[in-house]
Design a protein around this nucleic acid. Structure first.
Length: 112
DNA sequence: TCCTTGACGGAGA
DNA sequence: ATCTCCGCCAAGG
């Protein structure tokens, strides 16, 4: 299986992360149907054009931390984009219990 | 073909 | 909280 084959699936899943919420690499992999492909989620994001509409900044690692080096421009950019959506950092990480995306939330109104 | 490298994750110490 | 050590698996040398 080639990256191009599941890359689209990962990106489509990431597209669904609501503004103001985050998901981990492993979570995306799981939701997309490839439980052990956390690393590939990152690989898929790496090749995105800089003007992409994919909300890559809403993907953090399992500890709620940004994957880039803290002194990189990418780290800075991702942090700013998250804060712009109302997601704030505490000790260099976001609170997953507070911001983690839960797909089930979309089914709060069964009769619609 | 073998070895190393990751925008990772989880279990231990 | 910090730091290993593994498991993971396609890509690139």
């Amino acid at each position: 299986m080639k990256q191009s084959e599941y890359q689209a699936i990962f990106l489509a899943t990431i597209m669904q992360i609501p503004k103001g919420q985050v998901a981990s690499y492993g979570q995306i992999a799981k939701l997309a149907g490839f439980p052990s492909f956390a690393r590939h989620v990152g690989r898929s994001l790496k090749v995105l054009p800089k003007d992409t509409k994919v909300p890559w900044h809403r993907v953090v690692n399992a500890q709620g931390k940004i994957a880039f080096d803290q002194d990189s421009i990418q780290y800075q950019t991702q942090k700013e984009r998250l804060e712009r959506e109302g997601i704030y950092f505490m000790n260099g990480k976001v609170s997953l219990s507070k911001y983690r995306w839960n797909p089930e939330d979309y089914y709060d109104f069964p009769n619609t």
